[in-house]
Nucleic acid binder design. Structure first.
Length: 326
DNA sequence: GTTCCGAGGAGGGCTCTCCA
DNA sequence: TGGAGAGCCCTCCTCGGAAC
């Protein structure tokens, strides 16, 4: 259920409720499809022991025909214990062209596509069904055990998935203040908190009890008395401190943690399903985007062959052109 | 019917002003 | 003097109208 505003012919602004539906393909069905697609790449074993496959989730928002959607994809992580190598594939199927086995195995499958804004409330509305589906997957697992292992994606989806604030002084999931991001010594020493550690920090005080899927930010816009109550519950000294100092102390304590990790947002106990689930603090392709851009811009100046230079300049123009970011 | 563009929203932080 | 809130900044996302 979503809310929207409409202005009628008289100019009166009214708030309307409307219902939209998302489509989820159950993980059991996706995995059935994956097995069919991966059968040529699977390693044959002689034992009957239970095997483990690791799943990776990715999601992002975009608009299609003026309506905003969330798209969630799922893929299997390549593992040589479960899948053959490129060389083994060539030896097994000499009549076929060579294949990038890892790329084929890690090809993503559509999991959820639904209408949703990027607000926390809208995105959290898809969590209960994702948790139910994960429980259903475990109940139906056979000789292969599927483990939800990684989330990969852009910055905002990672922040949502980890229960982290968007932007601000603690924009990174590692918990280092933005002003210290250039401090490599600090960055290399920090231990990025796991989902369980995030949940522990989140629940150390009292205000987290006000969290719900419809009120996802219990630490936002607090009065001074509420900040003091939360800090006292976390065993902090609040004497002789003004509101700014108290707010800073609470922010430094939470280090950007705003809510439970998304998959831990329901009352259901999902620790046995998600105890290995990781939301990495970085997104490699985005993080090195400017390095790649600099390389593409710089390389033509080091090419002497005119034909190669012409081809590369075409590539550089098509890739970067007038864009601010590739 | 589709794509492009740009103003505005979401969620954060900082600074300034008002007022008790 | 200090709390509350307005106003502005940031990035990425949203969404309605214009253009094709």
């Amino acid at each position: 259920m979503f809310k929207t505003n409409r202005t009628d012919k008289s100019g009166t602004l009214t708030e309307l409720d409307y219902t939209v539906y998302g489509r989820m393909i159950p993980l059991t069905k996706i995995i059935q499809h994956m097995r069919e697609m991966h059968k040529d790449y699977q390693r044959e074993t002689e034992t009957n022991e239970t095997h483990t496959r690791h799943l990776r989730i990715w999601h992002d928002h975009s608009d299609i025909l003026n309506h905003t959607y969330i798209s969630i994809m799922v893929s299997t992580l390549y593992d040589t214990a479960s899948f053959i190598t490129d060389e083994e594939y060539r030896a097994k199927y000499p009549e076929r062209p060579p294949a990038d086995v890892q790329a084929m195995v890690e090809k993503p499958f559509l999991y959820v596509l639904g209408q949703s804004s990027s607000s926390d409330i809208d995105q959290l509305s898809y969590i209960p069904v994702r948790v139910d589906d994960l429980q259903n997957l475990k109940a139906q697992s056979g000789e292969v055990r599927y483990v939800m292992r990684f989330f990969s994606g852009d910055g905002p989806p990672r922040q949502f998935e980890a229960g982290h604030q968007r932007g601000g002084n603690f924009a990174c999931l590692c918990g280092i203040p933005s002003k210290d991001h250039m401090n490599l010594d600090n960055a290399f020493q920090i231990d990025v908190p796991s989902s369980q550690e995030r949940l522990k920090i989140f629940k150390e005080g009292e205000l987290w009890k006000g969290f719900s899927l419809m009120r996802p930010s219990p630490f936002a816009n607090l009065k001074k008395q509420d900040i003091m109550r939360e800090l006292v519950a976390r065993s902090h000294d609040t004497d002789d401190k003004n509101k700014v100092e108290l707010q800073e102390e609470l922010s430094n304590t939470l280090r950007g943690i705003q809510r439970p990790p998304a998959m831990f947002s329901t009352p259901k106990n999902v620790f046995d399903l998600l105890h290995d689930y990781e939301v990495p603090p970085g997104e490699p392709l985005h993080d090195i985007t400017n390095v790649v851009q600099n390389l593409i811009t710089e390389l033509p100046y080091h090419i002497s062959n005119p034909d190669t230079l012409k081809d590369f300049e075409k590539f550089s123009t098509a890739t970067i052109g007038d864009k601010n970011q590739i």
